[in-house]
Amino acid sequence: MKYIVFILFTVMTNAAAQLMLKQGMMSLGQISFEGTNPLLKLLQIVFSPWVFLGLCTFVISMASHLYVLSKVELSFAYPFLSLAYVAVAIFAYFVFREDLNGWRIAGIAFICVGTVLIAQSGRDLGGRGHDEETASLSSDKIHSGIVR
């Protein structure tokens, strides 16, 4: 649980990147590759301000996620990324006026409940993190072929 701040940072930067990419694609309008060089069109998309900022934010999010993965179990950290969907759905409702109907709200509620359950499972480690678990594989256990 001590890395929850980094996990939530990863989630929020992931969600922010999605919102920036959406804004960028909306500002570009309909995309057509007909009659143009596809590579030039792709570069135009990638280097449009909002899309470029969104891609850069994804890089930051991924760097944060890599740090988290070096500290906690993948099966603990990865499900938290589903909270990015929750953040995106809520912000998209307010920023882009996207639909947030009963089915989506119910799905968001299930995601939140599932994430809380996963967060509670982190307490079962008794404060032991990824570092301590991998450090507990002593060389004598590994050399003897018995890993417990």
Rank of each mutant, 00 (worst) to 15 (best):
L55W: 11
C56N: 11
T57W: 10
T57D: 14
T57Q: 13
F58V: 05
F58H: 12
V59S: 15
S61E: 02
S61K: 00
S61T: 01
A63K: 10
S64F: 13
H65P: 01
H65C: 07
L66F: 09
L66H: 05
Y67R: 10
Y67G: 03
L69C: 10
K71N: 11
E73T: 03
L74D: 06
L74T: 12
S75E: 04
S75V: 05
S75N: 10
F76H: 05
P79L: 05
F80K: 03
S82I: 01
L83Q: 12
L83N: 15
Y85V: 13
Y85M: 14
A87M: 06
A89L: 01
A89E: 02
I90Q: 01
I90C: 02
F91W: 02
A92S: 15
Y93D: 00
F94M: 12
V95Q: 02
V95D: 01
F96K: 00
L100D: 04
N101I: 00
N101S: 06
G102N: 05
G102R: 04
W103I: 08
R104S: 07
I105T: 12
G107H: 11
I108R: 08
I111H: 07
I111G: 11
I111C: 09
V113D: 09
V113K: 09
G114W: 03
G114Q: 07
T115S: 12
T115K: 06
V116H: 06
V116M: 11
L117N: 09
L117C: 15
I118C: 08
A119G: 09
S121G: 14
R123S: 07
D124Q: 15
L125R: 15
G127A: 05
R128P: 05
R128Q: 14
